[in-house]
Protein backbone atom coordinates (compact mmCIF):
# COMPACT_ATOMS: atom_id res chain seq x y z
CA UNK A 1 0.00 0.00 0.00
CA UNK A 2 1.59 3.21 -1.11
CA UNK A 3 0.48 6.74 -0.41
CA UNK A 4 0.77 9.52 -2.97
CA UNK A 5 2.00 12.93 -1.92
CA UNK A 6 -1.42 14.58 -2.31
CA UNK A 7 -3.02 11.84 -0.22
CA UNK A 8 -0.31 12.33 2.38
CA UNK A 9 -1.10 16.01 2.76
CA UNK A 10 -4.88 15.43 2.99
CA UNK A 11 -4.45 13.71 6.35
CA UNK A 12 -4.26 16.26 9.18
CA UNK A 13 -2.24 13.87 11.39
CA UNK A 14 0.49 13.94 8.74
CA UNK A 15 0.72 17.72 9.10
CA UNK A 16 1.18 17.29 12.84
CA UNK A 17 3.81 14.66 12.12
CA UNK A 18 5.67 17.06 9.83
CA UNK A 19 5.38 19.86 12.37
CA UNK A 20 7.23 17.66 14.86
CA UNK A 21 9.53 15.71 12.55
CA UNK A 22 10.99 18.62 10.57
CA UNK A 23 12.23 20.57 13.64
CA UNK A 24 13.50 17.30 15.09
CA UNK A 25 15.56 16.60 11.99
CA UNK A 26 16.78 20.18 11.82
CA UNK A 27 17.84 20.09 15.48
CA UNK A 28 19.58 16.77 14.93
CA UNK A 29 21.48 18.24 12.00
CA UNK A 30 22.45 21.32 14.02
CA UNK A 31 23.60 19.08 16.89
CA UNK A 32 26.42 17.75 14.74
CA UNK A 33 27.17 20.98 12.89
CA UNK A 34 27.11 23.50 15.79
CA UNK A 35 30.43 25.03 16.64
CA UNK A 36 29.56 25.72 20.26
CA UNK A 37 29.33 22.63 22.43
CA UNK A 38 26.60 23.98 24.74
CA UNK A 39 24.50 24.94 21.73
CA UNK A 40 25.01 21.46 20.29
CA UNK A 41 23.70 19.93 23.52
CA UNK A 42 20.69 22.27 23.50
CA UNK A 43 19.88 21.25 19.92
CA UNK A 44 20.09 17.65 21.07
CA UNK A 45 17.48 18.49 23.71
CA UNK A 46 15.15 19.86 21.01
CA UNK A 47 15.76 16.77 18.92
CA UNK A 48 14.94 14.43 21.81
CA UNK A 49 11.89 16.53 22.66
CA UNK A 50 10.69 16.01 19.09
CA UNK A 51 11.23 12.28 19.47
CA UNK A 52 9.11 12.32 22.63
CA UNK A 53 6.48 14.26 20.68
CA UNK A 54 6.42 11.56 17.98
CA UNK A 55 5.87 8.93 20.66
CA UNK A 56 2.95 10.97 22.02
CA UNK A 57 1.50 11.07 18.50
CA UNK A 58 1.67 7.28 18.41
CA UNK A 59 -0.18 7.11 21.73
CA UNK A 60 2.90 5.75 23.47
CA UNK A 61 2.58 8.08 26.45
CA UNK A 62 4.76 6.00 28.72
CA UNK A 63 7.68 5.83 26.30
CA UNK A 64 7.30 9.51 25.47
CA UNK A 65 7.44 10.66 29.07
CA UNK A 66 10.27 8.25 29.77
CA UNK A 67 12.27 9.91 27.00
CA UNK A 68 11.58 13.27 28.64
CA UNK A 69 12.43 12.03 32.14
CA UNK A 70 15.52 9.96 31.36
CA UNK A 71 17.11 11.61 28.35
CA UNK A 72 16.06 15.25 28.55
CA UNK A 73 15.73 15.47 32.33
CA UNK A 74 18.73 13.45 33.42
CA UNK A 75 21.26 12.39 30.76
CA UNK A 76 21.50 15.67 28.86
CA UNK A 77 21.52 17.71 32.06
CA UNK A 78 24.48 15.63 33.22
CA UNK A 79 26.20 16.38 29.90
CA UNK A 80 25.55 20.07 30.47
CA UNK A 81 26.90 19.99 34.01
CA UNK A 82 29.95 18.06 32.86
CA UNK A 83 30.63 20.57 30.11
CA UNK A 84 30.08 23.55 32.38
CA UNK A 85 32.35 22.23 35.11
CA UNK A 86 35.15 21.50 32.67
CA UNK A 87 35.04 23.71 29.59
CA UNK A 88 31.98 25.89 29.30
CA UNK A 89 32.61 28.34 26.50
CA UNK A 90 31.01 31.56 27.66
CA UNK A 91 31.42 33.10 24.23
CA UNK A 92 31.66 31.37 20.88
CA UNK A 93 35.37 30.63 21.04
CA UNK A 94 35.28 26.84 21.28
CA UNK A 95 35.77 25.51 17.79
CA UNK A 96 34.44 22.00 17.39
CA UNK A 97 35.00 21.53 13.66
CA UNK A 98 36.96 18.41 12.88
CA UNK A 99 39.08 17.32 9.99
CA UNK A 100 37.69 15.11 7.24
CA UNK A 101 39.36 11.97 8.60
CA UNK A 102 37.15 12.28 11.71
CA UNK A 103 34.00 13.39 9.93
CA UNK A 104 33.95 10.73 7.22
CA UNK A 105 33.89 7.63 9.47
CA UNK A 106 31.26 9.30 11.71
CA UNK A 107 29.06 10.01 8.69
CA UNK A 108 29.56 6.47 7.41
CA UNK A 109 28.72 4.95 10.78
CA UNK A 110 25.56 7.00 11.24
CA UNK A 111 24.41 6.12 7.71
CA UNK A 112 24.95 2.43 8.43
CA UNK A 113 23.05 2.64 11.74
CA UNK A 114 20.21 4.51 10.01
CA UNK A 115 20.13 1.89 7.26
CA UNK A 116 20.08 -1.04 9.67
CA UNK A 117 17.29 0.44 11.80
CA UNK A 118 15.22 1.34 8.73
CA UNK A 119 15.70 -2.13 7.29
CA UNK A 120 14.76 -3.73 10.61
CA UNK A 121 11.59 -1.62 10.86
CA UNK A 122 10.47 -2.40 7.31
CA UNK A 123 11.37 -6.06 7.73
CA UNK A 124 9.42 -6.35 10.98
CA UNK A 125 6.33 -4.31 10.17
CA UNK A 126 6.17 -3.91 6.38
CA UNK A 127 2.79 -2.46 5.50
CA UNK A 128 1.14 -3.31 8.81
CA UNK A 129 -0.91 -0.44 10.16
CA UNK A 130 -0.86 0.23 13.87
CA UNK A 131 -4.36 1.10 15.15
CA UNK A 132 -4.32 4.86 15.69
CA UNK A 133 -4.61 6.61 19.05
CA UNK A 134 -4.93 3.63 21.35
CA UNK A 135 -2.82 4.60 24.37
CA UNK A 136 -0.88 1.58 25.57
CA UNK A 137 -1.62 0.76 29.19
CA UNK A 138 1.51 0.94 31.29
CA UNK A 139 0.65 -2.37 32.93
CA UNK A 140 0.61 -4.17 29.53
CA UNK A 141 3.99 -2.68 28.76
CA UNK A 142 5.47 -3.77 32.07
CA UNK A 143 4.03 -7.27 31.73
CA UNK A 144 5.68 -7.54 28.34
CA UNK A 145 8.96 -6.15 29.65
CA UNK A 146 9.18 -8.42 32.67
CA UNK A 147 7.74 -11.53 31.03
CA UNK A 148 8.61 -11.99 27.40
CA UNK A 149 11.58 -9.62 27.23
CA UNK A 150 12.96 -10.18 30.70
CA UNK A 151 16.26 -11.70 29.49
CA UNK A 152 17.18 -8.85 27.08
CA UNK A 153 16.08 -6.40 29.76
CA UNK A 154 18.41 -7.96 32.33
CA UNK A 155 21.24 -8.15 29.80
CA UNK A 156 20.91 -4.45 29.08
CA UNK A 157 20.93 -3.68 32.81
CA UNK A 158 24.03 -5.82 33.18
CA UNK A 159 25.81 -3.93 30.40
CA UNK A 160 24.94 -0.67 32.15
CA UNK A 161 26.26 -2.02 35.44
CA UNK A 162 29.50 -3.02 33.72
CA UNK A 163 29.79 0.47 32.23
CA UNK A 164 29.22 1.96 35.68
CA UNK A 165 31.92 -0.16 37.29
CA UNK A 166 34.24 0.63 34.38
CA UNK A 167 33.60 4.34 34.88
CA UNK A 168 34.45 4.08 38.57
CA UNK A 169 37.58 2.07 37.79
CA UNK A 170 38.81 4.68 35.30
CA UNK A 171 38.02 7.53 37.67
CA UNK A 172 39.84 5.89 40.58
CA UNK A 173 43.06 5.16 38.68
CA UNK A 174 44.40 8.64 39.33
CA UNK A 175 44.25 8.12 43.06
CA UNK A 176 46.33 4.94 42.93
CA UNK A 177 49.05 6.71 40.96
CA UNK A 178 49.22 9.41 43.62
CA UNK A 179 49.40 6.96 46.52
Amino acid sequence: MTVTISEFFKESANWAFLAIAVPTLFAGWRTVTSNNIVRAVLYLVVSLGGTAGLFFMLGAEFVGWTVVLVYIGAVIILFLIGIMITRAPLGQEADLSHAMNVKAPAALLSTVVFGVITWAMIDAFGNNMIPPFEPTATSDLSLLLFDRFVIPFEVVSFVLLAALIGGIAIARQDEEVVS
Binding site: W65, L69, I72, G73, A74, T138
Partner: peptide, 13 residues
Protein backbone atom coordinates in the same frame (compact mmCIF):
# COMPACT_ATOMS: atom_id res chain seq x y z
CA UNK B 1 -2.60 7.16 32.80
CA UNK B 2 0.99 7.84 33.83
CA UNK B 3 0.45 10.95 35.93
CA UNK B 4 3.27 10.27 38.34
CA UNK B 5 5.80 9.80 35.55
CA UNK B 6 4.51 13.04 34.03
CA UNK B 7 5.07 14.90 37.30
CA UNK B 8 8.64 13.62 37.59
CA UNK B 9 9.41 14.29 33.92
CA UNK B 10 8.04 17.82 33.95
CA UNK B 11 9.73 18.72 37.22
CA UNK B 12 13.04 17.47 35.82
CA UNK B 13 12.66 20.05 33.06
Amino acid sequence: NIGLLYVLAVSSL
